Simulated scan of single mutants.
Amino acid sequence: MSNKYKYQIFAVSFLLYSSCNYQQKIDNEDLFMIKEQGAFSAGGTIVSSKGIFDPFKPWYEIQGGQTRHGDHADVFYQIPVNKKNNSIVFLHGYGQSRRCWQTTADGREGFSNIFLRKGYSIYLVDQPGRGEAGQTTKPVGISDKPDDQTWFTQFRIGRYPKFYDGVQFPKDNQSLENFFRMMTPNTGNIEETQVVDALSAVFNKSGDGIFFTHSAGGILGWKTAIKNNHVKAIVAIEPGGFCFPEGEVPENNRGGKGIPLDEFLKLTTIPIIIFYGDYIPIEKTTAYSENFWRDVLATANKWAEIVNAYGGDVSIIHLPEIGIKGNTHFIMSDLNNLTIAHLISDWLNDKKLN
């Protein structure tokens, strides 16, 4: 039985429950204890200026002979008592910070708390040049151009100003206000290799774990898994790009040129599950954002075929196909995020990753 149909059967069975019953189960769980929590930087570079620093001069005078530490990841972590063997490392997507995993637009618990309650140690990452990791060695100007409505549309909440019918996004004004204020700019022009190096340094600190990625973080997840053996599985929420082997890259891939086969084959050694939400059309439409995600989903399916043909273990879950409808690009924080968390938890248990 294929992975796709296995999860279709599971989802149909699960949807016989009321999702509110599962919400009540989470709400009524006993309090849990945190053994350790904190924050750290991982990876990064150091640049220096010529000259000799004079400690007697005022701070506002520009001087030589100094260093600048930047391009590192910033990580907040929590380790529960009686932790599971594998931790979870969370990476945001474009325009976002770790906050997208911590909460939702209407203030419910995000994935980080949900999986912390399940006994996983959590590591929440701001990638270099984003959020709390804003210190860079190659800073860029931050745009002040209004663009909220662009992201409302691109993230498939609706065709602004209208929400999609049945969308799993809270429609009140305060939730939309909160959502827009979660957008976070890039502060530096940081190379992909620097970001991957920083993420690999995170796994060197966290140890064996599952990498949860979102959107533009997807390509970084594949390359971190290739670089670091501590990545034991990947849960990718709507990844936008993929690592194909050289000579097998499809035309519409947003993950760059192909990689050597020996590197690609490292992705066949770990289980991977990928989720896509709703409002991705089968046929082309007049909406650019919908066609964009249509191409991405087609590329994802092609990538899964190739990985699995080389002996990998990739499952693509297009949620409407298994009866879960209304999800946006932010599946992990939609109104039904507990339903999605349950699906993921079941998969983690099935793969013996707990």
Rank of each mutant, 00 (worst) to 15 (best):
S49F: 00
I52D: 02
I62P: 01
G70L: 02
T67I: 15
A73H: 05
Y77Q: 01
D74A: 08
P58C: 13
K57P: 06
K50T: 12
P80V: 06
T67D: 03
F53L: 13
H72I: 02
K57W: 00
P80D: 00
G65L: 09
V75W: 09
W59F: 14
G70D: 02
K57V: 11
D74C: 04
E61Y: 09
F53C: 09
G64K: 06
F56K: 13
Y60G: 09
P58F: 12
P55I: 11
T67N: 10
A73C: 11
F56T: 14
G64S: 02
G64W: 02
Y60R: 10
F56R: 14
F76G: 04
R68I: 13
G51V: 12
R68D: 11
K57Y: 10
G64E: 02
K57M: 12
Q63C: 04
N82E: 03
F76Y: 14
I62T: 14
V75T: 05
R68G: 01
G65N: 01
Y77M: 07
H72M: 04
I79N: 06
I52W: 02
A73G: 05
P55M: 01
V75Q: 06
F76L: 07
K50R: 12
R68V: 11
P80A: 03
E61Q: 15
F53P: 00
S49N: 10
P80Y: 03
P80R: 00
K57D: 10
N82G: 03
D54I: 03
Q63L: 10
I52L: 08
D74T: 04
K57R: 11
Y60H: 14
F56D: 14
D54T: 10
K50D: 15
G70P: 06
K50S: 09
K50V: 10
Q63V: 05
H72G: 04
R68K: 15
Q66L: 14
I79F: 06
Q78C: 01
F56I: 02
R68A: 12
Y60V: 07
D74Y: 12
G51L: 03
V75H: 00
K57G: 06
V75D: 00
T67G: 00
Q78F: 07
K50C: 07
S49C: 08
G64C: 08
F53S: 08
W59E: 12
